[in-house]
């Protein structure tokens, strides 16, 4: 990096400098709902990752002698009871959570990558390129994606990778729109003009100056997209188009639980609670982040 660019990089860092982030963090932590959500979410992740190790059961062990055992089953170590095949619901709920969370995070990352690249490019170049690219987004936006995803699942069968790709491919549209708007506003700021005036290449300006400054909106968006994606996955699982047995997800568990809710309400209540609490936390954190980064509306 030459001298001019170093100076520019410092200038670019300034608007997202320490004070702004420190301010945002202070405001986020002052938001009790968001803070509590962060704590709960961390505990949830720990439980999902480590929990199954403390159970003698595996998620796919079938025990026909022990079907529909009601919790609390401390003796048999079935903390959440068992399902219609005698499988341990504690382990299944946690392992299902792994899938749900993983789908949420991976699919969001997919949409993030596509969306940021597309939106930043359109916003940065502006003019006709922008017009054309956003027209494409408009056209895609009006498509009933949920139905196309269902179609995709029907046609190509249930495959985890396919779910990632399909959901990620839906959500990048929002991301692209948000990032484009921000980029349009950013590119007229002094430090970007200065970089361009001194002959820094387009790719480098986008990478060094535009993207770091998009971080705030992107973070908010990511926290709000993850719960949406988890919801879509559970929706697919509910229709029987999600993960394959014996693997499971919260959506699939809720589906099974709902079928037998008269006989074994715990099979519905535990996964449904886990699902709802997780979505709750993500939504609260997302809201809190947005307020913290943009304290305009208080």
């Amino acid at each position: 990096m030459n001298k001019v660019e170093t100076a520019l990089a410092v200038a670019a860092a300034a608007p997202v400098g320490r004070s702004l982030w420190a301010d945002a963090r202070r405001r986020l932590f002052a938001n009790r709902a968001a803070l509590l959500s962060i704590v709960v979410l961390v505990l949830m992740v720990l439980l999902i990752v480590l929990g199954p190790m403390f159970s003698p059961w595996t998620y796919d062990y079938i025990d026909f002698d022990g079907i529909w055992r009601a919790p609390p089953q401390t003796e048999g170590m079935h903390f959440f009871g068992t399902d219609q095949l005698g499988r341990d619901l504690f382990v299944r709920t946690l392992v299902g959570g792994r899938i749900s969370l993983m789908v949420g995070i991976v699919a969001t990352l997919v949409s993030l990558l596509i969306g940021v690249a597309y939106g930043a490019t359109a916003g940065y170049f502006g003019g006709r390129i922008d017009g054309l690219m956003m027209r494409g987004v408009d056209i895609l936006y009006a498509l009933p994606f949920m139905f196309l995803v269902i179609l995709l699942m029907v046609v190509f069968g249930r495959h985890l990778v396919l779910i990632f790709v399909a959901i990620g491919a839906i959500n990048w549209l929002d991301m692209a729109r948000i990032v484009r708007g921000q980029t349009l506003a950013l590119k007229n700021r002094e430090f970007v003009m200065a970089a361009r005036a001194s002959g820094v290449s387009n790719g480098r300006i986008i990478r060094r100056h535009i993207i770091p400054n998009l971080l705030g909106v992107v973070m908010v968006y990511v926290t709000l997209t993850i719960p949406q994606v988890i919801l879509v996955e559970s929706f697919l699982s509910f229709l029987g188009l999600g993960v394959q047995e014996p693997a499971t997800s919260w959506g699939a568990l809720v589906n099974e639980g709902a079928r037998d809710m008269d006989a074994a309400p715990w099979a519905l209540i535990f996964p449904a609670t886990f699902l709802a609490v997780t979505l709750f936390c993500f939504n609260f954190i997302g809201d809190g982040l947005r307020d913290a980064l943009d304290p305009k509306d208080r």
Binding site: F235, V254, V277, L279
Partner: peptide
């Protein structure tokens, strides 16, 4: 509203049935 957004339709529906019908 946050609760409404965080509980999927297919959880709400069985719960409604459980409460109002069953």
């Amino acid at each position: 509203a946050m609760t409404g957004m965080s509980i999927p339709v297919f959880v709400i529906a069985p719960l409604l049935i459980l409460l109002f019908a069953v």
